[in-house]
């Protein structure tokens, strides 16, 4: 599909707006529909579109598989890390009220960080699923069919 100008130009034009929209869904989840799960899938979709049009090796040079796999764990660590910080500040696990001077602000910070953790994990898991499926070489690990 790399040689088709229609696909190439469309992907190049759409790539940044898709990620921007994903970030909007991520950080606007408090006020409108959306949140980490949806935003993660949208951002991953941008990279997968890039991979489908320009090839797996191109998207792997943009987002190396090792970095993507590290981010799957970083998201979970960010989420549970918020809970651990809450415990250190004297509250219960995932009790966001302790994060700021009053409960409402604490909840805002907590929800923002936790949703960011969800978004990071979902984005990177979706991308590594795509890498695993698209790069699968068959049982023997040889040249495949």
């Amino acid at each position: 599909m790399k040689n088709n100008p229609l696909f190439r130009v469309t992907t190049k034009v759409l790539f940044a707006p898709i990620i921007l929209y994903g970030l909007y869904v991520q950080f606007h989840g408090d006020f409108g529909p959306g949140g980490g799960f949806q935003a993660g899938v949208i951002i991953a979709a941008a990279f997968i579109l890039y991979g489908i049009v320009f090839g797996l090796s191109e998207v792997k040079s943009v987002a190396p598989p090792g970095v993507v796999q590290a981010f799957t764990a970083i998201g979970v660590l960010l989420y549970s890390g918020v809970g651990v910080v809450n415990v250190m500040l004297g509250g219960n696990f995932l009790d966001y009220n302790t994060l700021s001077y009053d409960a409402a602000h604490g909840q805002h910070y907590g929800i923002l960080l936790v949703e960011l953790g969800v978004g990071v994990t979902v984005t990177s898991v979706m991308m590594s699923l795509y890498y695993a499926f698209a790069g699968y070489k068959g049982e023997a690990g040889g040249a495949g069919n």
């Binding site: 408090d30 409108g32 936790v114």
Partner: peptide, 16 residues
């Protein structure tokens, strides 16, 4: 909490 989207509050806070 001043968060209009209850789905987000339930998902991320009440059911964290």
């Amino acid at each position: 909490l001043h968060i209009p989207n209850v789905v987000t509050t339930v998902l991320a806070s009440y059911r964290g």
